[in-house]
Simulated assay, not measured.
Amino acid sequence: MTIARVVRACRSGPSQWDAWTTTGQYLYLRYRHGEGSVERHPDQSTGTWDGEESILWARWDDGTDGDSIALTDFLAMAGLRLAPDAEVHTTPPIDPKA
């Protein structure tokens, strides 16, 4: 799968990103305690994540028990790649409620 847009979801561990493929599919990327996962969901709203369209697309354990990983390393482990013109946001959006 090719990623067209990726946004870092939080400032600290675990490493998490919201991502969209070149076909518009939403993916939730997470790395915690050395375990990486890619979940496919209908959209970014967590209220939609329990339906039939949600699946665990990939999962792995690198044996490090780490909570931080570079996006490029995560994508390589997950078998994903960035589109040449991908929009990448490495700083999470500011929460207006904070």
Rank of each mutant, 00 (worst) to 15 (best):
M1C: 03
T2G: 09
T2S: 07
T2N: 10
T2H: 12
A4W: 00
A4F: 09
R5Y: 12
V7L: 08
A9Y: 09
A9R: 14
C10P: 02
R11G: 08
S12P: 02
G13A: 15
P14Q: 11
P14L: 03
S15V: 09
Q16D: 00
W17R: 01
W17F: 11
A19M: 08
T21W: 07
T22C: 01
T22G: 08
T23Q: 09
G24T: 04
G24W: 03
Q25T: 15
L27P: 00
L27E: 01
Y28P: 00
Y28R: 14
L29D: 08
R30Q: 10
Y31A: 00
R32F: 09
E35M: 13
R40K: 06
R40V: 15
H41I: 03
P42C: 10
P42I: 13
D43C: 07
T46Q: 14
T46C: 06
G47V: 07
G47C: 09
G47P: 05
W49F: 10
D50S: 14
E53R: 15
E53W: 12
S54A: 14
S54M: 07
I55Y: 09
W57K: 14
R59D: 06
R59G: 06
D61S: 11
D62K: 02
G63E: 08
T64A: 04
T64L: 00
D65C: 13
D65Y: 11
G66T: 11
G66W: 02
D67P: 01
D67N: 14
D67K: 08
D67V: 04
S68T: 14
I69F: 03
L71I: 00
L71C: 05
L71H: 04
F74Q: 04
F74G: 03
L75E: 03
L75N: 04
M77P: 00
M77N: 07
A78G: 02
A78I: 05
L80W: 09
P84S: 11
P84Q: 12
P84I: 04
H89R: 07
T90N: 09
T91C: 00
T91G: 00
P93G: 06
P96G: 01
K97W: 15
K97Y: 13
